[in-house]
Design a binder for these strands. Structure first.
Length: 551
RNA sequence: GGUGCGGUAGCCAAGUGGCCAGGCAAUGGUUUGCAAAACCAUGAUACGUGGGUUCAAAUCCCAUCCGCACCUCCA
């Protein structure tokens, strides 16, 4: 079956566009590097990584470009606050981004352009827009895009933005803008802004506005009318709408042949919350009065601190309910950051969790509070599943290596089954990258492989078919493809650390138990096991001794 | 108000007209010195609600309720 992909522009499932036969040109909007990324940023990173892997597995060459926006107001703000150069800020968070996405099992794109390296091209692009009458400079040295001039403005988000603009009154937009939706192509440098964030231009020193970099860089690396433009759902408007408006008048052709947006990650602060009945009763009215309470915002921490600073006796029940909600919001805000979340769950589990839902459907981020701190039910489940996948790979490799094979006579029972499951898997991915659907045959392959390992003398051809199928599946989804020992070492080390366990002490208890077992003192051995179980340690007695894991 | 995505069993989540999703949790079993892991078996009148079309609806049509998000810089 040919690959079909949902196109956000037409809202239809279309065959994969192909500007050059056998090749796919893909541009995905990357992060603005002013801070650590959160789980919402993780989703497009993972989704597009799987898209690329699947297309490449199908024999295509994929030109995958994902930019770093390293010139931006927010970066300047962080730099000024910290008294460092903007460049230092962006470098630090580019490194952090790479580390975080690597933990998610994402491979680096084909190209990772940065705004700071494309300033001349951006200036030239702005000049072209002015020359064609789509942009205007103000006396202050700013340049704005004139949205009224672009007839298709709003086509991606399917909104009649120009009518809205007229309704709200052009000329009243302020900032020297002619229309409300006009946006900055070039921003003049302000006196307090650092030297590392200003570049010369025909309109004076300044920097590119947000949006223009993607038009310039996608063109520089992929040219006109490339195949797929992707990104997070919030970028649809205004970012991608503006990219279209900037690119199409200059190049006279659709910017991209298709648009791909993933769904949001939703945070429901009420779900699994341990709010008191009083709070629950007050909540609907409070949310009605203050919609800000619904969503996580940067001001939550400050607001919470203010309320806590007040004399407790002056707090109304409503105030106390707001405090409870704010506490929950702040907690979510912290753990939503991937770097923080990785203290509790493996990046690869985050990947499996993301791939368990179709990329366009909403995905909810769950957090439950326990006596031992926050737990993430869906992510913990994914991590357990990953342990199963890696365990299976270990078992299969051991079975193949140990020569525990039967005669290659008769007919192999499972070769065709494995081949069919792989076909089902590929077919699910071909259908608009249905990773959740693909996890069905994926799981069945692992189940069948496990079963095969439990049989006494499996047919070698079946074993090889299982091995080949697993290679294929894990490489495409980027799950359980690493070294199993490294995975278990990583996960156990993290758990030992979060629970303040002493690995040497555990090793010692395990040794004592082994000695007891060898002396057939099973009572003593079971006591030691119980002690370890209480610590959250699981023992696995095997042919090559006893291994332990934190669970 | 506009735009978009959803509501499927205890939880998560595929599926767009007829055939089994799958995972987690649960229960019983095989195995094991005992466990763990693995495997086997078992579920449940599952499709927000009310109508309609059809031999047949989670799937199509109409109505309606609920949730989430975006609507100038958060992926």
């Amino acid at each position: 079956m040919p690959f079909r992909l949902h196109d956000s522009l037409t809202n239809a499932l279309l065959p994969l566009p192909e500007r050059t036969p056998g090749e796919t040109s893909l541009y995905v909007c990357g992060p603005t590097v002013y801070g650590y990324i959160h789980v919402g940023n993780a989703r497009p990173a993972v989704v597009f990584d799987v898209l690329v892997r699947h297309l490449e597995r199908g024999g295509r060459i994929v030109r995958y470009v994902r930019n770093f926006t390293d010139v931006d107001d927010k970066i300047i703000q962080v730099a000024v606050e910290n008294g460092e150069e903007p460049r230092a800020v962006s470098e630090r968070f580019i490194a952090a981004y790479r580390d975080d996405t690597a933990s998610l099992g994402c491979r680096p794109p084909w190209a990772e352009p940065r705004v700071s390296e494309h300033i001349p091209a951006i200036v030239a692009h702005v000049e072209a827009l002015i020359a064609k009458g789509f942009a205007y400079a103000t006396p202050d040295g700013d340049v704005y895009y004139d949205t009224a001039k672009f007839a298709d403005y709003g086509k991606l988000s399917r909104r009649d933005l120009r009518a809205q603009d007229a309704e709200r009154g052009r000329g009243k937009a302020g900032d020297g803008k002619r229309g409300e939706f006009d946006f900055a192509l070039w921003k003049s440098a302000k006196p307090h802004e650092p030297a590392g964030a200003r570049w010369p231009s025909p309109w004076g020193e300044g920097r590119p506005g947000w949006h223009i970099e993607c038009s310039a860089m996608s063109h520089a690396l992929l040219g006109d009318g490339f195949d797929v433009h992707g990104g997070g759902p919030d970028l649809k408007f205004p970012h991608h709408e503006n990219e279209i408006a900037q690119s199409e008048p200059v190049y006279g052709a659709p910017m991209a042949r298709s648009w791909m947006h993933n769904g949001f990650i939703e945070v429901d602060i009420e779900k699994n919350a341990s709010f008191s009945d009083e709070v629950l009763a007050l909540l609907p009215a409070l949310k009605e009065a203050d919609p800000e309470l619904r969503k996580i915002s940067k001001s939550d921490g400050r607001r919470l601190a203010e309320l806590r600073a007040r004399d407790a006796s002056t707090l109304t029940p409503e105030d106390r309910a707001v405090i409870a909600v704010l506490e929950r919001k702040v907690q979510f805000g912290q753990w939503f950051q991937l770097r923080r979340l990785r203290e509790r769950v493996d990046g690869e589990a985050v990947r499996l969790w993301i791939l368990g839902t179709h990329y366009r459907a909403p995905l909810s981020f769950d957090l439950s509070e326990t006596a031992d701190g926050p737990v993430f039910p869906a992510l913990d489940q994914a991590e357990k599943r990953l342990e199963y996948l890696y365990d299976t790979r270990v078992k299969l490799a051991a079975k193949i290596a140990s020569g525990g094979r039967g005669p290659a006579s008769g007919k192999p029972a499972l070769v065709a089954t494995f081949e069919k499951l792989v076909r089902d898997f590929d077919a699910a991915l071909d259908d608009d990258l249905n990773t959740a659907g693909a996890l069905d045959p994926f799981g069945q392959v692992f189940g069948a492989a496990n079963k095969l390992c439990d049989t006494k003398k499996p047919d070698p051809r079946d074993l090889d078919a299982a091995d080949a199928a697993i290679d294929h599946l894990t490489a495409v989804l980027g799950l359980a493809e690493g070294d199993p020992e490294a995975f278990f070492a990583r996960v156990t080390a993290r758990r030992v650390k979060t629970r303040n366990l002493d690995a040497a002490h555990i090793d010692d208890l395990v040794r004592q138990r082994t000695a007891a077992r060898e002396g057939r003192e099973f009572l003593r051995a079971d006591e030691l096991r119980a002690e370890l179980t209480a610590l959250g340690i699981e023992l696995r007695d095997g042919a090559s001794g006893t291994a332990w894991r934190a669970v």
